[in-house]
């Protein structure tokens, strides 16, 4: 490459590198650095080196382990149900009917909806004073009293309720990905299986599932990362409460910083959080890598 070209190449990429160093690389290094200190947000002069103390106290803290467990629970429930619902929708929409295009577009229109709006909607749907969900359950005779399920203030239900808002928001994405996968299956595969006498269940198990597997794995990984990172929905619905019952890593980091002003601790949680997520997403990167090699 000519040296003049090199100069231009560097010049063109420089703004992007500067921005990423300023708001990605530098913060990450600072995050790691701060996690070895004890710093009070509300006292700018504070800050003493404490080594691994922040980490050690976290590992011994039952609350922190519980927060990690909650994060896993939240991801498992939300992504699991998103996948099942998304798959059902994709299968339904894979069969074409007259106005099929219109309904599919309609179903996918919340694709870009803000999480804040989803939490707002579900705050009212799940309210035990005037919520629609309790009222529907009551009208169906499932519950005795329209106020009897406290979706957001019962510690045993709070995390599930947050998951509902997340599932509602993200299922269209899951359906979209899986539908794209289903439509990539050549029709001839099904036809030749039909000729060979395979019934529809067999065709589903031996053709649909194996062919859609790579797309499904990708979709699940993307959603796992997204849901593990998500903050908006839980923060707006329960703020992690009641009694930390719906506390996940992202809300806990925020609380540690803004409520308790504990920069060292919140940085240490963030570092652990980043490493955990990184391990999960490295599976994803590895997968892309493999596919590019082939």
């Amino acid at each position: 490459m000519k040296s003049k070209d090199k100069k231009i190449a560097v010049l063109m990429i420089l703004p992007a590198i500067i921005m990423l160093i300023l708001f990605f690389a530098y913060p990450l290094i600072k995050l790691l650095y701060d996690s070895f200190f004890s710093i009070d947000l509300f006292d700018p002069l504070s800050g003493s080196f404490v080594g691994l103390e922040n980490y050690l106290s976290l590992i011994q803290s039952e609350r922190f382990l519980n927060v990690i467990l909650n994060t896993f629970k939240f991801v498992f429930i939300a992504v699991g149900l998103e996948f099942i619902l998304g798959f059902i929708m994709a299968l339904l929409f894979n069969r074409k009917f007259k106005t099929h295009q219109f309904w599919r577009t309609l179903l996918l229109s919340p694709l870009m909806l803000a999480p804040v709006v989803s939490s707002l909607i579900w705050k009212f749907m799940l309210s035990n004073d005037f919520g629609l969900i309790n009222w529907v359950f009551y009208s169906l005779g499932l519950i005795q009293n329209p106020n009897s399920i406290a979706w957001l203030s019962n510690p045993r239900l709070a995390l599930l309720s947050c998951a509902i808002a997340e599932i509602w928001l993200s299922t269209p994405f899951m359906a979209l990905m899986l539908l794209a996968g289903l439509q990539g299956i050549p029709k001839s595969l099904y036809e030749s299986a039909k000729v060979d006498g395979a019934n529809s269940l067999k065709r589903f198990v031996f053709i649909t599932l194996p062919v859609i597997k790579p797309v499904a794995v990708t979709a699940i990984l993307i959603k796992t990362i997204d849901v593990a990172r998500s903050f908006d929905i839980i923060w707006n619905l329960t703020q992690g409460g009641p009694h930390f019952s719906s506390e996940v890593l992202s809300t806990y980091v925020y609380k540690m910083l803004m409520r308790y002003g504990d920069i060292g601790n919140s940085s240490a949680i963030s570092v652990i959080f980043t490493i955990l997520l990184f391990l999960i997403s490295s599976i994803f990167i590895f997968k892309i890598w493999n596919r590019n090699e082939n």
Binding site: F23, F24, Y26, P27, L28, K30, L31, D34, I225, A228, R229, F231, L249, S250, V253, Y254, L257, I263, S266, S267, S270, V271, F273, T274, L277, F278, S281, F284, I285
Partner: peptide, 12 residues
């Protein structure tokens, strides 16, 4: 793939 909450702390 970095959790945004994490870098939010130092960015803040």
């Amino acid at each position: 793939m970095i959790p945004l909450t994490s870098i939010a702390v130092p960015i803040y």
